[in-house]
């Protein structure tokens, strides 16, 4: 089979599952169950594209990101990065992959070593991977990375605690860019920032994507930021993808009852709009992923569920071009 590199998605995830065992006993530990954090998902991300992964706590979005980065070894499924299955690579084989894939974490406070100067934090990946052994040239590169992220190079001599949350997040971004990766997992990368700073960092991520041709997996729970930044969006619920479509299509015509509930729950910053909105919060809470409901995992909370939803797990179907939904009750 000949597929040219340009047509091939940069990342393709097939049947990805991550089940964490629950064990009991200390000396004679035995497995008593498992948490199905991610339970068989498929998606692809094209070069230069940003895919948003949204959902509530425990839906498996962060675990998905960690599997792709191979910070976890998935239970099942394939992760094709640039055509190569990385799901079973050993830690030695992963070294090369780490240069091409990076991550930006949520918390700019705990993800930077407080005892290291900003310059050393950003230089560390360059050093570890032996990319630039000359200290002076490494320093030049650090300065370049800091300026690219909107920070004055003089920050290289400061410690993280001397900086604000937004500036620290810029350091985290500079570090992620140090190895010139092609793909970055942004795990709630702007969620911890103040409203006035969030927009600055969102703009920075967009600029860098254009300038460096980056591909992002943008994991977040803030739907308005996701709509702004992502070309396509996948909605997860209890370890499964329930809907996936182009961003505008998903937000304008949500088809899955869960996506609809999620969107109606987001308050709009405008009292006039809010006063005129019919608003029904979805009932109940997300069930435990240890004993997920049978059939469609959303059926206990679903306003349109019928008897059949308790029996069969709905498959992700392409209802409109590029618009995939896992619900047998929408047509």
């Amino acid at each position: 089979m000949t597929v040219s590199t340009a047509d091939r998605p940069l990342l393709e995830v097939r049947g990805l599952a991550m089940h964490f065992p629950i064990s009991e006993g200390i000396v004679l530990s035995r497995k008593v169950g498992e948490v199905k954090a991610v339970d068989g998902i498929d998606f692809a991300i094209g070069r230069g594209e940003t895919l948003g992964l949204v959902g509530e706590s425990g839906c498996g979005k962060t675990t998905t990101g960690r599997c792709i980065l191979r910070l976890e070894r998935p239970t099942a499924g394939q992760i094709l990065f640039d055509g190569q299955d990385v799901s079973g690579l050993s830690s030695r084989e992963l070294v090369g992959l780490r240069r091409r894939m990076q991550v930006i974490f949520q918390d700019p406070y705990s993800s930077l070593n407080p005892r290291m100067k900003v310059g050393d934090i950003v230089a560390e990946p360059i050093k570890v991977h032996g990319v630039e052994r000359n200290p002076a040239r490494r320093r030049t590169r650090v300065d370049e990375l800091l300026s690219m992220c909107g920070l004055d190079p003089k920050f290289a001599d400061r410690y993280p605690h001397e900086m604000s949350g937004g500036q620290r997040q810029r350091v985290g971004i500079a570090r992620a860019l140090a190895l010139e990766p092609e793909f970055i997992v942004c795990d709630e990368a702007v969620s911890a920032l103040d409203v006035s700073i969030q927009a600055q960092v969102v703009n920075l991520l967009e600029d860098l994507r254009e300038r460096l041709g980056l591909t992002y997996l943008f994991i977040a729970h803030d739907l308005s930021v996701v709509r702004h930044l992502c070309q396509r969006v996948a909605v997860m619920y209890l370890g499964r993808i329930v809907e996936m479509a182009a961003s505008d299509e998903l937000f304008d015509h949500p088809l899955h009852p869960y996506t609809q509930a999620l969107l109606s729950a987001v308050p709009i910053p405008d009292p006039r709009v809010e006063a005129g909105r019919a608003f029904r919060p979805p009932r109940g809470e997300v069930p435990s992923p240890i004993n997920p409901p049978t059939g469609c995992v959303f059926h206990p909370r679903c306003p349109v569920a019928v008897e059949a939803c308790k029996q069969t797990r709905p498959k992700l179907r392409e209802l409109r071009p590029g618009h995939w939904v896992a619900c047998d009750e929408v047509h």
């Binding site: 937004g166 409203v195 700073i197 969030q198 927009a199 702004h228």
Partner: peptide, 25 residues
């Protein structure tokens, strides 16, 4: 004014770029 302008809104068309409050807290 700046704060209200800086937040993306689901009920409005997608902006080309966000309009942040510049500077640091």
């Amino acid at each position: 004014m700046a704060l209200l302008r800086s937040v993306p809104r689901l009920d409005r068309p997608r902006q080309a770029r966000l309009d942040p409050v510049e500077g640091q807290p």
